[in-house]
C-alpha cells in the first residue's frame, strides 16, 4: 500500500501524484517506470517515474485520465492509498555526458521527458526543450523545464506559444543549432514525426514507448514492439529505443487491441465521473 502524499491537477485530465515509495525513490533512474495497480481488481498499468524525492521517500507519477483504469487512478485523492506499486522497471535512459540535447515533450509525454532532462543536467549537457499541447491548458511542466535550459512552447491552436506542432519548432532548432541527440516522448504520431524529421539529419533520436503491459518484468510479452526488424519486449528491453528503428505503425496498431473492451468498461463505469469534482 502506497499513500498519496500530494495531488495536483496539471491540465484538464492530467494529474500529478506524489506517492510514498521509499525504496523506488532511492534507486530509480531517469527513464524507468513503475507498474501501478490502484486497488484490488484494477489493471496493472505502467507509469513513468517523473521525479523522486529521496528524503521524503516519494516518487512523482503523472496520470492522464483517458480510460477506465487511468480515470480510477486519477480519482484518488491526497491521503488515499494505491494498492500496489512495483519497480523501478525498464532500462534507464542512455544519457549522453556532454554536448547538446534537444528534448521534446508532447502532452503528458513532457512529464516523461522531465527526469531525462534532470539526468542530462547532472551530466552538464546543454539542454534545449520543445514542449507542446493541444492548447494552453494542455502544456505541462514548462516551469520545471525552464530551470534546466531554454524552453520553446507550441500549441496546436496557437492559444499559447507558437502555433503548430513540436516538429515545426524542432526543425528550426535543428537547422540553427548543433544538436547531438534528441529525446522525444509523446503521442505515437508525434514520436514518429520527430523520428522522420531527424532521420535524414542523422541525429540520434531516443523515444519512450508506451505499449500495453501486464507484469512489466518480461513475463508476458504483451508489450512486444519491433525495433530494427527485431521483436523486443518494451518492459525489459526498453521502454526507450532508437526512434529511427521503431515500427511505429505496429505500436499504434497494437495499442488499439482493447478498444472495444475499453468502450464497455467506460460505459459500464456507473459511478459519476469524479474528475469534475476535483479541486486543483
Amino acid at each position: 500500500m502506497n499513500r498519496i502524499f500530494n495531488k495536483s491537477q496539471l491540465s484538464p485530465n492530467v494529474f500529478k501524484f506524489e506517492v510514498e515509495a521509499e525504496r523506488i525513490a532511492q534507486v530509480r533512474k531517469p527513464g524507468q517506470f513503475v507498474i501501478v495497480r490502484a486497488r484490488q481488481g484494477a489493471e496493472r498499468i505502467p507509469l513513468t517515474i517523473a521525479d523522486a524525492n529521496i528524503s521524503k521517500g516519494t516518487i512523482t507519477l503523472v496520470v492522464q485520465a483517458v480510460g477506465k483504469s487511468t480515470r480510477d487512478l486519477a480519482s484518488l485523492q491526497k491521503g488515499d492509498f494505491i494498492n500496489d506499486i512495483a519497480g523501478p522497471l525498464g532500462k534507464p535512459t542512455d544519457l549522453i555526458d556532454h554536448g547538446t540535447a534537444l528534448c521534446i515533450g508532447g502532452g503528458v509525454g513532457t512529464a516523461v521527458v522531465y527526469p531525462i532532462i534532470k539526468g542530462l543536467s547532472n551530466n552538464n549537457v546543454k539542454i534545449i526543450s520543445v514542449i507542446g499541447g493541444r492548447s494552453k491548458e494542455w502544456v505541462i511542466f514548462e516551469k520545471e523545464l525552464k530551470e534546466f535550459g531554454e524552453v520553446f512552447v507550441c500549441t496546436d491552436d496557437g492559444s499559447y506559444g507558437t502555433k503548430g506542432f513540436v516538429t515545426n519548432l524542432a526543425e528550426e532548432i535543428l537547422k540553427r543549432s548543433r544538436v547531438d541527440i534528441v529525446y522525444a516522448v509523446g503521442p505515437v504520431p508525434m514520436m514518429r514525426a520527430v523520428a522522420n524529421l531527424t532521420r535524414p539529419l542523422q541525429v540520434k533520436t531516443i523515444v519512450s514507448l508506451n505499449p500495453i503491459m501486464v507484469d512489466g518484468t518480461g513475463m508476458c510479452g504483451g508489450c512486444r514492439v519491433v525495433v530494427n526488424g527485431v521483436t523486443k519486449f518494451a518492459c525489459v528491453d526498453g521502454p526507450e529505443f532508437d526512434g529511427h528503428q521503431v515500427d511505429f505503425d505496429l505500436l499504434m496498431d497494437r495499442l488499439s487491441t482493447y478498444k472495444a473492451q475499453e468502450r464497455i468498461a467506460v460505459t459500464l463505469h456507473s459511478e459519476p465521473c469524479k474528475l469534475s469534482e476535483v479541486k486543483v
Binding site: 481488481g41 496493472r44 513475463m219 508476458c220 510479452g221 505496429l250 473492451q261 468498461a265
Partner: peptide
C-alpha cells in the same frame, strides 16, 4: 506473431488467472 489476437500463453493465462479477466468488466483487465 505481432498481429492483434496473438498471445503468449503466459500473457493469456496471466490476464485470465491473476488479473481475473474472465470476470471482465467486473475486474478491469480485459
Amino acid at each position: 506473431e505481432n498481429l492483434k489476437g496473438v498471445y503468449s500463453a503466459n500473457e493469456y493465462l496471466t490476464r485470465v488467472n491473476l488479473m481475473g479477466a474472465y470476470a471482465f468488466p467486473k475486474f478491469d483487465t480485459p
